[in-house]
Design a protein around this nucleic acid. Structure first.
Length: 823
RNA sequence: GCCGAGGUGGCGGAACGGCAGACGCGACGGACUUAAAAUCCGUUGGGAGCAAUCCCGUGUGGGUUCGAUUCCCACCCUCGGCACCA
């Protein structure tokens, strides 16, 4: 007997061939190209674009596969969906690669993009690649420069001195993330604080509006909270302490406090080491000590200074100021627990009612005076600071003011006396966009010997990055040493000028990329205003929560700024936001090379297919909670897809079934449509897959029992395919074609369920005694209350439980249960 | 310290205040096979019992309720974020 080695090829699920076939076909047919004039309602669904690191790892898949499924779902539901993709291609790794391997950042980046684009395509995504943008392309970054100039004209961009992390060995500024325990991550030199001229965007002008989330439809509460904390709005009072007795130009020290009611408890004053008055007020016999302290404080990195559990340090400067409320003289200290960057850089110290001041006072033996009554206070010394509110004492005319009126009473008093005023202070500072790096957008500014700071005229944009820069590990930007780039003519007077050699933070690129996607090849403007009006804002945005306060906040700021410049007509860039979680290794640990738990998606795709990988990633668990990879799990997913395949290719023509089973199949089908639809609407991809698995299990039972006719079978399988299409697009397209349905399944309308057809004629009535399950009865769904109770009380198991006790109550929940309460 | 999210079988996870553990992984048993792989079928929270059945179980302790994984209070862990912001 002839032994066939394997089943005929046409009947096996050959994922490799099928996926290649349909990826080719979809591209050929331009299935995913989005038309701007499509009459269907628009839906702009965006996923955060990647940095082209060179390899699409499993984390990328975890971000993009569920997104792709949701986009496909929305298309089938009848939306004209804009789903674009691009590359966030400026940034440090390219430059480091240049320094380490001698390959130009441009070459490195473009090679990575090419490779990732191909890997992307193996997911089978719906991206309209004609709209791809690459932010390191001059056609893109010229508009960064253009926006910069618009901001400059409108006082939203400015230059100022700012303290930065400076590595004296590398001769460069480091980002906060590059400073580890106060040392340069590359050469381990102690990092210094240094004041440098930097460019800023005036995001603080929008602080209050950024706190208003009312224009958003659906954002995670967590992200809003993080942004709220980041902006850090606090209402307080600015008070004035007198130093006129020193005869300086400055007559006062201004302090910001949120607790003006504690002002009579001030026993000393603290200035930040960077405070300009430190130098002027320090007594001659204190000079040496104070200077040494300030020097040491400035060397400590911000990270070091901000660690709260450090012992408070500081020194007296040998001067005093006068508390305007009670005329008391209080000594002035310099201490690094006070930050120049917040409030006024000076703090009125109230040790009795502030933990930090309390710690400092303890250490230096300074007096503590209670002015707010703690509950159950015995009038004695405090063991720790009392930071709550309470009736004011030791506060002169304000004595006796109750805690709930204290703030306003003191603020009113201060304003009436002209010694203070209500102010709002923010934690957020302006956005520092200068980077001393090559691989970024050149800031379009020249410094003219005659005219000073001159913006590059718009018609001279873009200021191009020179290709022939040299990449040496000096730490200095290749732009600064590139003579051809630096030396230029002043656009105003034609005289000699030097170009700005700093480049822009890459978050500038991502602050408006969503706008570029509507018209990525627009030549005369950053985007086509009509198309932006038609497509924007983004209806649904997905991406990692790590961008909660950087990218997302910057982007909101950018949008609001552009609105005020008349460039866009809406307030928020992203109406809905969904944050996916993080994919972990099989050992439930973060994936890392050192742990050896990194999963290479290319290998798994080759072995089991893209559909198995993407479906498994969605099945792991709730998308926003992340989850762990599992080799066994993805294998199981592959098994299920093979079962779907088997169902899809069966020939049902010989079936001839019974009416009851047909109705049941229809019921299960409509229930499944309902479950899958609501799950996909809510980004619940895991239960979406479960529902489809249960559906296929039911279909297999039906098939084994031969209980339905061919038409019923075909109709149910057709629905299965449509429902599975967004999740496993290649497999379904193939089965769809083999079943003889019109191409493409991805252009079919989404199935609609009918609640009546999904309704069970019979239900399982749960019988409880005292809330514990005792029996289950199959009854008609429209059973009357009396009948249900009667059946319950007649149940043998109920009778045995009730025996010898009294029935006190019978609770009936229609369609659900009967609970017999006995006692 | 503060702010989030979370704690459910061996594992990932399901469950409008109403049958806890859907679905899957793993494990065990069986079928097919010379054998294995693959595939298919069955069992699978713990305990008692020959069995019908019963008891215990959703981090811990209370509370609300006829009924709590679900709501409230307190606490303990885990993970994320922020962290001297006056």
């Amino acid at each position: 007997m002839a032994q066939p080695k394997r089943k005929p090829r046409t009947n096996a699920y050959d994922h490799g061939a099928i996926e290649a076939k349909w990826q080719r076909r979809w591209a050929q047919d331009e299935l995913y190209q989005v038309a701007d004039d499509d009459p269907r309602p628009k839906w702009y669904e965006l996923v955060m674009y990647p940095y082209p690191s060179g390899d699409l790892h499993i984390g990328h898949w975890y971000n993009y596969a569920p997104y792709d499924t949701h986009v496909r779902f929305m298309r089938m539901r009848g939306y004209n969906v804009l789903a674009p993709m691009g590359f966030d291609s400026f940034g440090l790794p390219a430059e480091n690669a240049a320094i380490q391997h001698g390959v130009h950042p441009y070459e490195w980046t473009m090679a990575n993009i090419e490779r990732m684009r191909e890997q992307f395509k193996s997911i089978g995504p719906v991206f309209d690649w004609r709209r791809e943008i690459v932010t390191s392309d001059p056609e893109y970054y010229r508009w960064n420069q253009w926006f910069f100039l618009q901001f400059l004209k409108n006082d939203l961009a400015y230059r100022a001195k700012a303290p930065v992390n400076w590595c004296p060995s590398c001769q460069t500024v480091l980002a906060n993330e590059q400073v580890i325990a106060g040392r340069c991550e590359r050469c381990e030199t102690l990092v210094e604080r240094r004041d440098l001229e930097q460019w800023f965007f005036r995001i603080t002008r929008y602080a209050d509006e950024l706190l208003d989330f009312s224009g958003l439809i659906d954002w995670p509460e967590k992200i809003k909270t993080m942004q709220r904390n980041w902006v850090g709005r606090s209402e307080g009072v600015e008070l004035v302490f007198d130093i006129a007795h020193y005869g300086l130009d400055e007559k006062e020290i201004r302090v910001f406090t949120t607790r003006p009611d504690t002002v009579h408890g001030v026993t000393f004053m603290v200035l930040a080491p960077e405070h300009p008055l430190v130098e002027r007020l320090t007594a001659s016999d204190r000079k040496a000590g104070v200077e040494a302290y300030v020097r040491q404080a400035r060397q400590a990195s911000e990270i070091e200074r901000l660690s709260a559990d450090r012992e408070k340090s500081g020194v007296p400067i040998g001067a005093h100021c006068v508390n305007p409320f009670n005329g008391e003289e209080v000594p002035i200290f310099v201490a690094d627990y006070v930050l120049m960057g917040y409030g006024t850089g000076a703090v009125m110290a109230v040790p009795a009612h502030d933990e930090r001041d309390f710690g400092f006072a303890r250490r230096l033996g300074l007096p503590v005076r209670v002015v707010v009554t703690p509950p159950d206070w015995d009038g004695g010394d405090l063991a720790e600071a009392y930071t709550g509110y309470g009736t004011m004492v030791n506060s002169g005319v304000l004595d006796g003011t109750p805690g709930d009126r204290a703030f306003d009473a003191v603020a009113d008093y201060a304003e009436g006396q002209g010694i203070g005023k209500r102010v709002v202070s923010y934690r957020m500072r302006d956005w520092l966009i200068s980077r001393q790096r090559y691989w970024g957008t050149p800031i379009p500014i020249v410094y003219c010997d005659e005219c000073g700071v001159v913006p590059v005229p718009e018609d001279q944009l873009p200021v191009l990055l020179p290709q022939d820069a040299e990449f040496k590990p000096t730490g200095e930007s290749p732009l600064a040493s590139h003579q051809g780039f630096v030396h230029t003519d002043c656009p105003q007077c034609g005289g000699h000028a030097r170009r700005e050699t700093d480049t822009m933070d890459t978050f500038v690129d991502s602050s408006w990329y969503y706008l570029r996607f509507v018209s990525p090849h627009e030549k005369d403007a950053p985007f086509d205003p009509a198309l932006a009006a038609a497509w924007c804002p983004v209806d649904q945005y997905t991406g990692g929560a790590e961008h909660a306060v950087m990218h997302l906040l910057y982007c909101r700021f950018f949008t609001k700024a552009l609105r005020d410049l008349g460039i866009v007509a809406f307030d928020e860039p992203f109406l809905r936001l969904f944050n996916q979680g993080v994919i972990l290794g099989e050992d439930h640990d973060k994936m890392s090379k050192s742990r050896g738990n990194v999963v290479n998606p290319d290998n798994v795709v080759k072995r089991l297919g893209s559909d198995a990988v993407r479906t498994f990633l969605m099945f792991i668990g709730p998308w926003d909670q992340g989850g762990s990879w599992s080799d066994g799990g993805v294998q199981g997913m592959s098994r299920w897809l093979n079962r779907v395949w088997a169902i899809g290719i069966r020939d049902p023509s010989a079936l001839d079934g019974a009416r009851q089973a047909v109705e049941e199949l229809q019921r299960v089908t409509h229930k499944t449509i309902r479950r899958v639809t609501t799950d996909l609407e809510r980004f619940q991809f895991n239960t979406n897959v479960s529902a489809l698995m249960e559906f296929t299990n039911h279909l297999n039972r039906v098939w084994d029992a031969r209980s339905v006719d061919a038409a019923a079978w075909r109709s149910a399988v057709k629905t299965l395919l449509a429902l599975l299409a967004p999740t496993a697009p290649h497999l379904v397209e193939e089965l769809w074609e083999r079943a003889g349905y019109p191409y493409s399944v991805h252009q079919q309308p989404w199935p609609v369920w009918d609640d009546d057809l999904a309704r069970d004629p019979e239900i399982t009535l749960v019988i409880q005694v005292n809330g514990k399950l005792r029996d289950k009865l199959i009854v008609s769904a429209d059973i009357a209350e009396e009948e249900a109770k009667e059946l319950a009380l007649k149940s043998e198991r109920v009778l045995s439980q009730v025996a010898g006790k009294q029935v006190r109550r019978v609770v009936y929940v229609p369609g659900k249960l009967v609970n017999v309460v006995v006692g």
